[in-house]
Design a binder for these strands. Structure first.
Length: 289
DNA sequence: CCACAGGGCGGCA
DNA sequence: TGCCGCCCTGTG
């Protein structure tokens, strides 16, 4: 990986095969990135607005600088991890095509609080709706960051801010029955932020048990939070798409917990990465029947 | 108008 | 412990 810095832009070379914006932003791990007309993606991370474009072998981060690249983007885009090695390890006869299909996927390291709320919202919900609810929350209760390409961008509201809202306020954001779960999370986290931010130091099992104490967080949502914001790569979220693809590829069917257990024996420490390639493949309409 | 998609909770065996 | 009805919103 070679990086060049400009006034308001960072360019990355020699990472082409392991970085594909469409794969990264549309594999179900994040909800705040949107495709622009030129095929680039614009999103909000913390209080920054970033645009990501791939042009041939060049990856261009627009609207940013060297300081933010080093302090935010290296970790956020997991740039120090060797995805080539992971893909080689996962490319057995069953997974070869599936890994190839999503070869530019990287697992983002997102904020714990935003990820917690985002995946509570994801319960029994579709991606388009989840994105809409998160946008509503940010626009109405986050703070204004700035304009980019003529659009307004807002940060995700803090736990303290959401804790001041009523269940009715939250329902106005179209959270539906999840409003009381979000309130529960905000109350817990605003009272004790250390609790949430220290979960990453626990084992996978311990952290999952802890995060499930929040109402609205069960096995699937909990595994998503651990994988997408706490670097727990043993995590293997099983939703309806994962059930379908695991049955098709490995002839495994059963309860989510049973499927997760089997994933551990097949993929080991790479379960979370395998889950992303499988989910992306299934969700992009590549399932049979 | 109705059917359906999509995780977790809570009540009831 | 396991099962099942229900929660909410948008789309077809």
């Amino acid at each position: 990986m070679k990086v060049s810095f400009y006034k308001n832009k960072v360019e990355i070379r020699e990472l082409s095969e392991e970085f594909e914006p469409k794969h990264i932003f549309e594999c179900g791990q994040c909800f705040r990135w949107n495709r622009e007309e030129d095929g680039s993606y614009t999103g909000v991370v913390q209080n920054k607005v970033l645009n990501v474009k791939k042009s041939g072998d060049l990856i261009i981060l627009n609207n940013t600088n060297k300081k933010d690249f080093e302090s935010i983007w290296i970790d956020y885009f997991d740039l120090n991890r060797n995805y080539s090695k992971i893909k080689t390890r996962l490319s057995d006869s069953n997974l070869k095509n599936i890994v190839e299909f999503g070869k530019g996927i990287r697992i983002l390291n997102q904020d714990e609080w935003e990820t917690l709320v985002s995946f509570i919202i994801s319960a029994n919900n579709r991606i388009l709706m989840i994105k809409r609810v998160i946008y509503n929350l940010s626009k109405n209760h986050g703070h204004f960051i700035g304009h980019y390409r003529g659009k307004e961008y807002y940060s995700f509201p803090t736990a303290d801010k959401i804790n001041q809202l009523s269940e009715k306020d939250l329902r106005l954001m179209k959270t539906g029955f999840r409003a009381k779960y979000i309130k529960d999370a905000a109350e817990r986290v605003s009272k004790d932020k250390e609790w949430l931010y220290n979960l990453k130091d626990m084992s996978y099992d311990q952290a999952l048990e802890e995060i499930k104490k929040i109402k609205g967080v069960g096995d699937k949502v909990g595994n998503c939070i651990l994988l997408f914001s706490m670097k727990k790569h043993e995590a293997f979220p099983v939703d309806i798409w994962m059930k379908r693809i695991m049955e098709q590829v490995y002839n495994i069917n059963g309860k989510p917990e049973e499927i997760r257990k089997k994933s551990e024996t097949i993929f080991g420490q790479y379960s979370g990465f395998a889950q992303q390639y499988l989910f992306y493949y299934a969700s992009q309409g590549k399932l049979k029947e």
